[in-house]
């Protein structure tokens, strides 16, 4: 039984933030880990991920002419900085789009590669006939919510995250099936990315905003891990179908920085024009990068019928990595 990607929609915050909004200009100019963006979007202070995701879902519903009350059995989400700490936003989306999904899961981990993990979760429910149609919702909100604060926006790393949202409608048929998946996780790297709150726990009251501990001392190791795992996962999915990785028409990965994009493309000898990303205008979209880019390049007709598209990436300090292949039809 296959899981088919029926339709996909992205939605970006209207608030465009240009480079001059951030501090440490010298570092951003000279260090490629912090450069390469012209602008990025920020979610507004009073905006909700559930509103963005619901709006995108309603567009899909209208375009597909489906009935939300009967044609959505499952909603899964990954929201980097959730609207609410306890309840997640899957149930809120269920309400806002007048759906009646029986299975609703808000998955907090797997970050930048969450789209593929969520797809696999839905696929598993499909395989036991609990689900026919589902909405996969990925939201990156860390840019505005963490790096849009007065104190955190002064850091060079603040320029790198950008917010964005994407919703995918999937069905258990063979209309446009995911052809193969590969997943790996590395427990040994599970504690290498942490929040940084000036010595306070993130749930404790404090005078300064929290941020992400971008530890320069771990940078070499994390770059090494990412350089190794993502090409490896790409080659694994290709091998599953007896394909050579040079047969990929388009590669879409998460987009942490310009170096990783370059390294992954070089690692599989892919010409630059066959790597699709939006780093310059949307920056690091975390988990939303893969579905936002897929939607963007389907919408602008770069991806055409028959194209073999590889989706791949890793999360956090390389605790999870995955890849998938889909042929656009």
């Amino acid at each position: 039984m296959s899981i088919s990607l029926i339709d996909i929609e992205e939605l970006m915050p209207e608030k465009i933030i240009t480079n001059d909004y951030f501090g440490e200009e010298e570092i951003r100019r000279t260090n490629r880990m912090f450069s390469g963006t012209d602008e990025r979007r920020h979610i507004g202070r009073d905006e909700l991920a559930s509103d963005y995701l619901s709006s995108a879902a309603l567009k899909l519903i209208a375009r597909l002419g489906i009935n939300p009350a009967s044609d959505i059995d499952m909603i899964v989400t990954n929201v980097s900085i959730p609207d609410e700490p306890f309840t997640g936003c899957g149930a809120v989306i269920n309400k806002k789009i007048s759906a009646n999904a029986k299975w609703v899961f808000d998955i907090h981990n797997t970050g930048c590669i969450s789209f593929l993990y969520l797809t696999d979760l839905v696929h598993t429910y499909m395989q036991v006939n609990k689900v026919r149609h589902a909405l996969i919702c990925v939201a990156q909100t860390a840019a505005g919510r963490i790096f849009g604060q007065e104190d955190t926006r002064q850091m060079a790393q603040a320029a790198i995250p950008g917010d964005g949202f994407a919703v995918v409608y999937v069905t258990n048929n063979s209309e446009r099936p995911f052809l193969t998946f590969e997943f790996e996780n590395y427990p040994e790297f599970s504690e290498d990315m942490k929040s940084a709150c000036n010595g306070r726990h993130w749930w404790e009251s404090r005078e300064s905003s929290g941020s992400i501990d971008f530890n320069e001392n771990k940078a070499a190791m994390i770059i090494g891990r990412g350089n190794k795992t993502v090409p490896k996962m790409i080659k694994k999915v290709c091998a599953n179908l007896d394909l050579n990785h040079t047969q990929i028409d388009y590669l879409i990965t998460n987009q942490p920085n310009v170096n990783f994009l370059r390294n992954w493309r070089e690692a599989i000898s892919l010409p630059a024009e066959r790597q699709l990303h939006t780093f310059d205008k949307y920056a690091n979209l975390f988990g939303a990068a893969i579905p936002v880019n897929l939607a963007t390049f389907v919408k602008n007709k770069t991806i055409k019928a028959g194209d073999l598209v590889c989706l791949a990436g890793f999360s956090h300090a390389c605790d999870y990595s995955a890849a998938a292949l889909i042929r656009w039809t």
Binding site: N217, K218, A219, A220, M221, I223, G224, N227
Partner: peptide
């Protein structure tokens, strides 16, 4: 202090 081995990839 970070350990020198953390920089091997560099």
């Amino acid at each position: 202090r970070p350990w020198v081995g953390q920089f091997w990839d560099f």
